[in-house]
């Protein structure tokens, strides 16, 4: 067996083990709150890992990403509340509107460079927020859209079961992660990296800059749109807080702490960070120290974490894991070499 085959086999084993553990979790964990956090964490992991496609691989400073998530949530929510359309149609519709929005944002954005892209995309996401707030009869305004129906199949309510939401969101996360990993290792992904690292050369070699960037926006918006729809039905509310600085910072920290341009990093840290920040918001210790307003403190913590990561670990958690596994492999490699020399 060549080392390449061996590594691939190890990867399959890791995937199989991961899926087995995932399937077992709802059987073992009975605490409702922890399950709630796990589902929320996986939804955020979807959003964060898709953000990694534009932010990490394409190197485009896309600050409209959470708007795609929010648009998905509001689309499915409004369709269900105002028009009585089934969530199972509303959620794909959310993916579709998010994709449309991503095209609209990227048309002016792909022409611009660096800082101007950041300004424009940020402005676009705030514009979506202003529009949502301006139509309180449809969107619920500042209070958010309440009364979004729960997910159900026939008479079976997803909320009644520990498994339903968890498996649904887990399946979505799995699809999204496989999709993203395939994408970034494909020719398309390589062309994005080429454009990011050496734009002039990549363009000179015939990579169409505008088309690839537009596709990056589009492909990164579909799963967040779907996740947004599920999010609205899971929390039975679509709130304008999605567009705020706090959630943006939280999701940004997942991408950065997880490791830019890795996909796996944001998925992993997305789940972990949700637990950390939500448990901080509810722990008794925090409430003792900071009085009643402990919710905001976790966002302060997240902000500090981001700055420290940018300062000291720009490669993120996944970068560290990779570095250590590479070192371990090297050590093993030299050991077998020595052995073969001896024999």
């Amino acid at each position: 067996m060549t080392p390449m085959d061996e590594r691939r086999n190890i990867r399959y084993v890791i995937w199989a083990l991961g899926i087995a553990v995932f399937l077992a979790i709802p059987h073992v964990v009975t605490d409702k709150f922890l399950m709630h956090l796990a589902i929320l964490g996986m939804l955020y992991a979807i959003v964060a890992s898709n953000w990694d496609l534009t932010l990490g691989y394409a190197g485009v400073f896309n600050f409209a990403h959470l708007a795609f998530f929010g648009i998905g949530a509001y689309t499915s929510g409004i369709l269900a509340v105002k028009y009585g359309i089934s969530p199972w149609l509303g959620i794909p519709a959310g993916g579709l509107t998010a994709a449309l929005a991503s095209i609209l944002v990227s048309i002016p954005a792909i022409r611009l460079r660096g800082i101007y892209v950041a300004l424009l995309t940020f402005a676009c996401s705030q514009l979506v927020l202003l529009l949502l707030l301006s139509q309180p009869l449809i969107t619920g305004g500042q209070q958010g859209l309440t009364g979004v129906p729960q997910l159900q199949i026939g008479d079976f309510l997803f909320r009644k079961s520990r498994f339903a939401h968890f498996y649904l969101v887990g399946f979505l996360l799995l699809c999204s992660t496989i999709f993203l990993r395939r994408l970034v290792t494909s020719d398309f992904g390589l062309s994005l990296i080429a454009l990011r690292d050496f734009e002039e050369y990549a363009v000179a070699r015939g990579i169409p800059l505008a088309r690839q960037r537009l596709l990056a926006f589009l492909l990164s918006s579909i799963f967040p749109g779907l996740a947004g729809g599920v999010y609205a039905h899971f929390l039975i509310v679509a709130s304008p807080d999605i567009f705020g600085f706090s959630l943006t910072t939280l999701l940004l920290s997942m991408v950065l702490v997880g490791g830019v341009a890795t996909i796996y990093g944001p998925v992993l840290v997305g789940v972990v960070m949700t637990f950390v920040s939500e448990l901080m918001a509810t722990s008794a210790w925090m409430s003792d120290v900071f009085g009643i307003s402990r919710g905001p403190v976790r966002f302060m913590f997240v902000a500090v974490l981001i700055v420290l990561t940018m300062r000291f670990f720009p490669e993120g958690v996944w970068g560290l894991i990779k570095r250590f596994s590479a070192r371990a492999r090297d050590a093993q490699g030299t050991a077998t070499e020595e052995q073969s020399q001896i024999t």
Partner: peptide, 15 residues
């Protein structure tokens, strides 16, 4: 710096 100042804004707002 965009990222760190966004973090700073969130820190100040919540603080």
């Amino acid at each position: 710096v965009i990222i760190t100042t966004i973090a700073g804004a969130s820190f100040m707002q919540n603080g």
